[in-house]
Amino acid sequence: MSVIPLPADVEIVTGSTRGAQLWRVLRRDPLSIMSLTIILIYLLMSLFAPWVAPYPAQGAGKSNPPTVMLPPSPQHWMGTDQLGRDVFSRVIFGGRPAFIVPLLVVGLAVLIGAPLGAIAGFKGGWFDETIMRITDLFLAFPSLLLAMAITAALGRGLENAALALVISWWPWYARIVRGASVSLRDRYFVEAAHSMGVREPVIVARHILPNCLTPILIQATIDLGTVILAMGGLAFLGMGTQPPAADWGLMISEGRTSILNAWWIAIFPMLAMMILVLAFNLLGDVLRDFFDPRHYR
């Protein structure tokens, strides 16, 4: 027998993997390429902040009285703040709590939510009921409010804010994966695994979870924007990153009192956040369109 796939009558079966197809779609779409590039630049700048920032010490929080509230200039591209610190350096350093931490938050939320949802959907019964009622409980509160309440209880600080966000975000993933898991439970390959005598934990790990990756990936991409905003919100309210460390939310909060005479202090971190969230939303839309079953190619 030859090994060539049969073309379906109308739709052409492509022999490449979904990943390769996705890459082709992304590559052709200028918006998605742009958002990917933006996200990558942000990631690299945040990771290598001490080397990228022109004034690393100021970025980390050291004040510099001689240069208080200077407008943007070739020396200070985004001007300086009330304590004389270079806003550009602060924006780069601020990316660490404002961008890297949300990445970790979403990652953790997926790690907690996805297995719970997969098991709930697969097992059904009391376990499913319990998990789903717990997620209902969490989802009944607006995520940001819940995170604020938890932070208030745990105490201010970046770690607690991040923890609070994880706690209020995992139920979303449990929900999504549970739905996918229920639809996979009765699929033939799962039934075949059952009939072979494969143990249930192995079925969940090998057959259910890998096939839920698509909805998880889409939701995570879209959520990242939201979590970045939530993280910024907590910082703005003084519940997240504590001064003198830099964080976009915190910087906006610090700059808002002088917005009329020194607009640059608040506007640049605001722009930084806006562009990143926009990039994630665009990427999420592209992914959702790509994986949509109605998406006909």
Binding site: F189, E191, A192, G197, R206, P210, N211
Partner: peptide
């Protein structure tokens, strides 16, 4: 109790594509 018996009886389903996990 069924697990040891399972290896003696196997099943082949109708839809060949659906009976194989797409990610393996």
């Amino acid at each position: 109790e069924l697990l040891p018996l399972r290896r003696q009886m196997q099943v082949v389903f109708q839809n060949p594509q659906q009976s194989l996990s797409a990610r393996l």
